[in-house]
Structures are given as C-alpha cells and as structure tokens.
Design a protein around this nucleic acid. Structure first.
Lengths: 198, 198, 198, 198
DNA sequence: GTGTAATCGAGACGGTACGTCGCGTCTTGTT
DNA sequence: AACAAGACGCGACGTACCGTCTCGATTACAC
C-alpha cells in the first residue's frame, strides 16, 4: 500500500532514509493510539516514544493520520483471499467472513474509526484513505461480483455498485454508529439478502 | 432535541440566559463551518463571529460539536413524515425519499460528516450524537417496520434490525466513503432489495 | 524607564494584567541569565521558571532582551546623583565614581554586555536600548557639562559631545573589549584628561 | 591572522583541503551578512550560497562568527601603516585617520558590530576576537606610543594603556552606541586632547 | 429602592501542541 | 581524507486555541 513519499529509485546523494526510525515511528503510533486514543495522539508524542525528532515524521508523512494508516498496514493483515468457492453465494459468504474478522479486533476497529473520522475532516487524508484503503476493499468485492457475472449466477438486482455500498455501508455503520459487533448472523443475513434467487 | 444544559425551570435570581446570544452563536457556528470547514472551526472563532465571550459558549455547550449539532437542528428540517402509504414497499420508499432529500443539501451533509467524525473521536459527544440523532432516525424507520409487521407484509428476512443497518449504513457510506450523491435510483434499489417477496 | 507596552490609562474591559506574573518573569529572567548566560537564556526557560505561559511573555515583550532590560531596571539601581560639587572637575569625578560603581557588579556588567550585543543584532531592540538606556546616561552627564558651561569652567576642548563619547566609550570599551575592571585610577585619569586647564 | 584550524604542514594521505570551497564560503558569508544581516546569517545559508556541504564549514570553523572574521580579513584592508611622522601628535593623527577610514565603510562596520556582539555572547569566539583582532589594533597604537616615549614627546598623562582605551573606546562607542559617523573632526579632537602639552 | 446573584462581553492567564528553523552530527557515494 | 548531499536527533521558536479566571457592566428577582 503506497501511501507516503517514495524516494526515487535511482540512487541519490546523501544519507539514506532510516528504516529503523520508520519502524519505530509506526510502532509508536500504533501503541500510543491504543493507550491514549486518537484524540490524544500527537506528533510530539509519537516522536518521543519513537526516540526521533518531529521533523523526521514531518519529512515523510503529512499528518498523524497518514502515519497511523501506514502503521495499520504494517501491523494488521488487511488482505482478503479471493478463492473461487463455486457459487456467488459461497464466494460472498467467504468474503464477508474474511472481512468481518478484522471488525472483531478492537484495536483495528478503533484505528479504522479514527481514520474514517479524519478522512471527513482532513481532505488531503480523505483522498488517500479512499483511494489507498476503501477503494481496494471495493475492488476485492468487485472481483467476486465479476466472477459471479461471468458464471451467470449474479442476481439482476441490486446493481453491482449498490451491492458494494450495501455491504461496506452496513459494516461501517456498525463500526461507526451502532458499535455493535459484526457477527456471523450478519454475514448470513447479507448473503441471503443479496445472493438469493430474485 | 435536548442536547445542552437546561436552566432549572423554577425561577432563580440573576440575569436570564440571553436568547440573542444563543441564536448568534448557532448562526455563527453554522456559517463558519461553511466558510472554514470543521477543521477550522474554533470556539474562539464562533465567539468572535457571534460577538460574545468564550465563556458564554462554554457555559451552555461542552464542545464545538455540541454547538454544531444544535445549530443543525435549528437550521435544517431533520424530521421525516410517517404517513401510512398502504404497503411496506410504499412506506419504505417514502421514508427513503424523505431521508435522502437531506443528503442532497451540501451544507447539511458536510455538517453531518463532521459530526459523525467527531462522534468517533470524542466519546462524550459520540454518546449524545448516537442517542439524540442516530437513534431517532432508527426509531422513525422502526415505526415503518412495525406497521409492516402488523400489516403482515414484512418479509421474514432480513431481520428488522438488519434492515435498519442496511438502510442507514448504505446512506452513511455514500456520504462518508464514496461521496457519491444519494439519488432516487438508490431508493428504488433499496426498496426492491428489502421489500421484495422473498 | 518605559520600555514595554503600556495599557491605556482609561479603564478597559477584561481581566487586568497580572502584576504577579510580570514580577515572576523579570525575576526569572534575571536569575536565569546569571545561571546559564545570555546565550542559554530562552523565552521557554523564563516561562518555565516563572510558572507562566510563553504567550504571557510574548504579550508584553517583543524579545528576551526587552525582558532583560526591564529586569535590570527593576533589579539594579541605575541612577546617578546630580549634586553640585562646586567645580567641573569635582562634578565629573563624582559622576564617574557613581557610574563606574555599577561597572563593578559582575551580574550587572554581564547583562549590560548582553544587551549591548543584542542591540547590534536586533534593530528593534537597538533603538529601545539607545533611547531608553544609553541616551539617559548621556543626558545625565550632559547636565554636568551644562552646569560647567554656565559656571564657566568647561575647557574649550574637547567639545561637549566628544566628552560624552570619550567617557562612555572608555567605560564600554573596558566592559566589552578588554574586560579589565573599571577602577578609580581610570576615574582620575579621565578627570585629569578632560577637566584639566587646557 | 590565524583563526581557523590549520591542516598539519606535513603531507598526509587523502584529499587536500579545497581552496575553492574556502573562498566560496568566505564570499558567501560576506555577501549574505550584507543581504540578511547577522541575525539572519546561518551556516545552512552560507553552505547553500557557497554550494558546499555544511560539514565542510564545520570542519574548518567553529561558528559563523569565525567564518565572518576570516571573511572580513580577506575582504577588507584592516592594516594600518606605521610610518614615523616626526612627532607624537602627527603619528597619532595619522593612526587615527587610517583607523577611522575603515569606520566609514558601512559593510565593514556592520560586520565589526556583529563580531563585537558575538564576542559578548560566545566566550570561545570572544577570546579569539580579542586576541586576533582587538589586541592587534592595540599593538599598532602601542608602537606609536613607544616611539613617542623614546622620542620624549609623550605627555605624562594619561597613561599609555589609558590612551589605548580612550582611542578605541571612543571609536567603538561611536560604532556601537551612537552610530554617528567617525569623521576627521573627531580625529582632531582626540589628537588635541591626548597629545597636547599637559 | 436596594441588595444579591447569575449572566454578559472582554480579555489575560497557564498550558499543550503545532509546524518550522537551524543546530551540529551522521551516513552515503564520489573525487 | 575531503567533498556535496541530505537525513538524523534535538531544542527553541513564535502562534493558535484550549478551557479557566478575573474584571466591570447589566439584568432580574427577593426583600
């Protein structure tokens, strides 16, 4: 997940970016957000915990949210499998199970809520979050729908893009609004609602 | 919508709360958030614009989000009708049309996104936002579902609470994540998906 | 010695300037410069020592040198007497003794050197230092010369303004360049050189 | 004027010091101090202007003031002649004219003021400035006095060391405190005051 | 009317973090 | 070894707001 400035691949003069500092910063951000919450997370705090200067953070990330997004990518297994289970219903169920599994890790959920919040407030981060995180999730589910379409077992309604909105919308709404855990009962209901014979 | 401290109803000595200041503060908050965005909205800025002291704001609201929520309640018509249209499908369609209408007012959408963001970051406000705003929306839709249940035309799946999550989840996801406008096509797809004979 | 912003004399709304903070800041600056030297004197350090916020310093003084100048005015007796001793020679000798007495207090000398240095580097402070400090010294000696002129015992050379330059020049050069103490031998030599019959 | 680290004269392995960089650094320092003032003069700025790395400056000079002192030595003709004019009065007058000539070059004066200021704040530089600059001036005038003593036309008062303090004190005071130009009238007044028959 | 009490606008206060600047040091690859 | 380049840990800068605390003025009820 490319989300920070990339050094040009050709060799440049000068000292190289410190991989040690980068890791220390990501670890510090991940730990701190668990300890003091996103509201209490500061660049200064991350720098202190990581044992680096503030400038080293500002050099590579534009905001604490950018740091946290990369920390999440490093810490959490955010990827879903894309195996063919033979039918749209089974593919969809598998996708939802994979996805919802993340939604049960409190630390990950707290970070996701914070990042989605920041994406509403900070437009620069919002664009990155949508393109580098949210869109990738949509792409993964889109692959399932494409396969169903090719296979011929995709119900005519709702339209594919609406399926994406319903699936991710329901998941995010649970995280952001009701705060109820996302369980397998929800997997079943969504699968039944979306994959049933129309 | 009770969201700020209430002066005791029994008469007390001392100067009364200034309704003029209250209005000026709500108007200032509403205007400012449109001009500088939620990230740039500050208590000091509101006080300056409203021509009042900061203390007057802190006396009656705990945070800028609380002010904004009340400003929204004053400015926008947030309520939906609850007329009986004869069938679950028609009731649901009417509810969605009413609700989505709000989602096409950019100023209102921007404020809603900011408030949902703040609700993730500020737990005190989060509780208020969920109970005083989000839950009321759910209650309104629940009334539609209750009527359908009584009428006997509510499909067995998905469960009522899942319908709520799907409807509001899809709406919020459009606002927060895809930023695509919520149009009547979505109304039809949701109605068809949720109210069809299973 | 007026050297910081003056609140208008007419009563204004709002909380009054804290005299307690003002004193704490001046004391802290005076103590700190003795402990860490002018190079190590920082606004942040003064604020910490004084138990106040940095803004409270910035609100009333434009730079650490301005603080230090006022601290010096509070701490040190910078004024010289102006009694008539009957002759130019005796008046001059008395003035020099009064003035040089300050030059033997190490803490005061260190601060004066720092302020003269800052006056070279910071033009805004330079103007204040010249008008509020250096010129007042010159005025005091000028009074001695005016009396001698009226009395008729002022040698025709050097011109009065040159006498000022020689007296203060020699003193400051000792402080800044040679760092040799200014003793009574110098008083006698200057008196003899400047007040002798030409 | 020896004021920076000297590479050992014996031949050593490795690349030789770049004379080109040395000149570029001195020129850059001299130009920059004229453009942005001493307060705005930074090692980074010098390095950028000179097209060299910061390390190359730190390798050879301990501070920006050291660089500036050497730049001044390169740029300005700081030396005074020491011809015998036959009498103490004429020797002194010639010395003062030579010396004051420098005091009319604004760029040089600005640098001298900055260096004297730095000498008050930075003890390491202060020692160098006194021994490598100020003392040399005193030595030159001392030679004039020595010759007058040998010749027999040195007035008994003031003492030689006091003459030095008065001459340089008056000059520096004009530069640092009054900022009035040092003109030939001052030369005459000092000559008359110090070289007259007592 | 005359306290007494709560509100108001104004603005200073002690704090915290911001994002920037420059310090002096340390790689890194080249000369 | 010195060089240009540039990242690094560090510390202070001056600013922005936070939420609190005087101030004096205003406004209402209770006596």
């Amino acid at each position: 997940m490319v989300m920070d400035k990339q050094p040009p691949s050709e060799s440049r003069p000068g000292r190289k970016r410190s991989e040690e500092s980068r890791r220390a910063i990501l670890v510090a951000a991940f730990e701190l957000v668990g300890e003091v919450g996103y509201a209490g997370l500061t660049i200064e705090g991350i720098a202190n915990r990581a044992g680096c200067g503030k400038q080293t953070i500002y050099r590579w990330w534009p905001s604490r949210a950018h740091v946290l997004l990369e920390a999440l990518a490093v810490k959490a297994d955010l990827y879903v499998t894309n195996a063919d289970h033979g039918s749209y219903g089974d593919d969809l169920r598998a996708f939802l199970e994979d996805t919802f599994r993340l939604g049960r890790q409190q630390r990950v959920v707290d970070i996701l809520r914070a990042l989605m919040a920041e994406a509403q407030i900070n437009e620069e981060f919002g664009q990155l979050f949508r393109s580098a995180f949210l869109q990738r999730r949509r792409d993964a589910l889109q692959a399932v729908l494409d396969r169903a379409l090719a296979r011929g077992d995709l119900p005519p309604r709702p339209a594919a893009s609406t399926v994406l909105d319903i699936v991710f919308g329901t998941l995010w709404y649970r995280l952001l609004a009701t705060r109820r855990p996302v369980g397998n009962d929800l997997v079943e209901e969504l699968t039944a609602t979306l994959a049933q014979a129309a």
